[in-house]
Amino acid sequence: MMWLGLVSTLIAYAACKALYRRFHVVFLNPMITSLVALVLFLHFAHVSYATYDASARWLTSLLGPATVAFAVPLHRHFPVLKAHWPEFLVSLTFGSATGITGSVLLARLLRLNHAVVTSIAPRSVTTPIAMDISQAIGGIPTLTAVFVILTGITGVVVGPWLLRLLRLKSPVARGALFGMGSHGIGTARAFEYGAMEGTCSSLAMIVAAFITLGLAPALVSALG
């Protein structure tokens, strides 16, 4: 029973990844299918989330090292960041500000309660960082984690469509769109367009985390 969460997650992930490789359909993104498969499994097997998470949280604890691991692409592709720093800096500053203000204003417009509003604000950056920002601005970190995932999934679904709609030509803009809009989940998708898109997405994701970290506390308190 102790290993159930870890084992079921590994199996679901491997199977869903194989399924996605076989049929390249956006709704079969492994993030979506694994989530649906596991929620259904836990529901019908009458397993609580606490029981599942007892061992599955070992995987979550790898999110920190996985974030630190982004120092490697940052180092490897630093010349790309140096060559395109104006694109990254300007677009990600606007992107982060839009993410925070947009979430807060929309959430308030729909009269969601205060805890949800603060938990939803940092949702555009990668989970461990979003959870830390959430904590800092008075949100609920675990709820933020759910919003981050939801954002990532939304991003991989709407991203390819927006890319065509906006007629983005530069790999920098395509990568920035995915990295800023749906962090790690979007980065996995961006690599499907090409190495440069994926690289730019990874870079955008890291830089966006730094920028959101700087902007969030000030913006959230300014928005009252």
């Binding site: 596991l38 929620v39 998470d53 995987l59 996985a66 759910v146 995932i149 790690g184 996995a188």
Partner: peptide
Amino acid sequence: LLLFFIPSSV
């Protein structure tokens, strides 16, 4: 990377 997001998404 996606694997490490799954438990929190559940």
